[in-house]
Structures are given as structure tokens and as C-alpha cells.
Amino acid sequence: MANNEIRNLIIIITVVFLIAPGFLLAYVFIYNRRKKSHIEEKAQMKLTFEAEIAKTQLEVQEQTMQTIGADLHDNIGQLLSLTSLTLNSIELEDIAKAEQKIDTAIDLTLRSIKEMRLLGKLLQGDQLIVLGLAEAIRYEISWLERSGKFVISYLQDDELPAAGNPDKDLILFRIVQEVLNNIIKHAGGTQIGIKLGYSEGILQLSINDNGVGFDMDNLPVEQRGMGLQNIQKRAAIIGGEAIIVSNPGAGTNVTISIQYP
């Protein structure tokens, strides 16, 4: 090989070998920039998630306070008024009647105490979640049943994992509260079915009612935006999916599926 050829060959190879690391460094730079935006996106998602959790906690507390307010007014308040009336109406001259009225007052007081104890438990609000999602739902149902307006069936899978996920539990519990609120306010039904199932790492929560239902396609925008989108958004935040099926006159079925725990 002539000297000129060797010279040209070496110069070309050197230039090529000089460009190659340049491309490699450019690739590392681009990859690193993508890594940065990925990290920023993850941080943003974490912030959104935390904000949603905080908001949900606040809503659960608000709901609890509303329930307590209503119960104090409708139930305990009535019991205590009745107790007061009973005690006021006691005539000491008629001992037998007075004894009967005192017994009634004692009974009313005991019922008030019992109600107060239940309220005390409810006052713990979102702490109910510490007991687990299934327990929190059961507690919510027991309050609703006391109104006497609904027949509620609750089916719970025995396979539910012992160690839950507090964040997911909180969001799911809030969804249950929202769906139950919708049933109470809008559905006008008498029967509610709640099912909590678990299979192969997927938790499925299903709530149905026999209310008036609605036409999914012709729902007014203001109604669509309130409850239903909230349910779907919350389910998505915990990596799940909410399917809402409803037809006029045929009730509504809300099913949420998420990876659990």
C-alpha cells in the first residue's frame, strides 16, 4: 500500500472514530434529557396523587360530619327531647306511673348513649379505613340501613388480602360514599347491592341499585361532570377502571376494578 493511501486511510478512520464518540455522547445527552422529563412527570404524578388523597380525606371527613349532624338532629336530639319530656311529665304523687316514666326515661337515655357510642366511632372519620376497606364499607352500610329506606345486600369475598393499601382503600371508600350518595339523592331505589370481590390480584367493587337509572348518552353535561367523572377520575388515579352501566328504569351498576394491594 502506498504511503498516500495509508495516510488517507488513517485520516479517514481517525475522523470516523472521532465522530463515533460524538454521536454516543449526543445519545447519552438525549437519553438523559428524557430521563429528566420522566422523573419530572413522575414527581408531578406523585404530587397530583397526594393532592387527590388529601382532597379525598377531606371529603370523607365532610361526609362524616354531615352524617353526624343529621344523626344528632334526627336521632339523638329526638331521643333526648323525648327523655326530657318524659322526665318533665313525672308526677311524684302517682308513684306507679312515675316509676313507669322513669323506666322509659332510663331506656331512652340508654338508647341515646348507644347512639352516642356509634357516633363516637363515626367521628373517627377516615380512621375507619385503618380497619380495612371491607370493614369501612360494612360500617357505612349499617348507617344507611338504619334509615329503613333501603334493603342492602353486601357480599364480600373471603379471599381479600390481609394487608391492604391505605391510599387505594381511602379512594375506594370515597367512591362507595359518592355512589351511595347518588343513590340516596337521585336514584330513588329501594334495593342496593354491594359486592367486593378479589381474584388474581384484581379487586372488584360493584354497586348496583334498582332506581330510576339514566340514559348514559343523553346525560346533561352538568350532571355528567359532577359524580360520574369524579368516580372515573378517582379510579384512574389508583390505576383502576370504573365502568358505569345504566338505563332509564333499569337501575345503575358501577363496577371498579383495580390491581390490589
Partner: peptide, 20 residues
């Protein structure tokens, strides 16, 4: 990387380079 990778050609043709 720039220095040692780019000097590969020189290392390869080391014996012939003295004549160029």
C-alpha cells in the same frame, strides 16, 4: 473516550505509520 477511541487507527497501523 475521544482520545483512546480515535487513536485506534494509529494503534492498528503503528508499524506502517513511521513511513508516512
Amino acid at each position: 473516550l475521544f482520545f483512546y477511541f480515535s487513536s485506534t487507527a494509529c494503534n492498528f497501523f503503528d508499524d506502517k505509520l513511521y513511513s508516512v
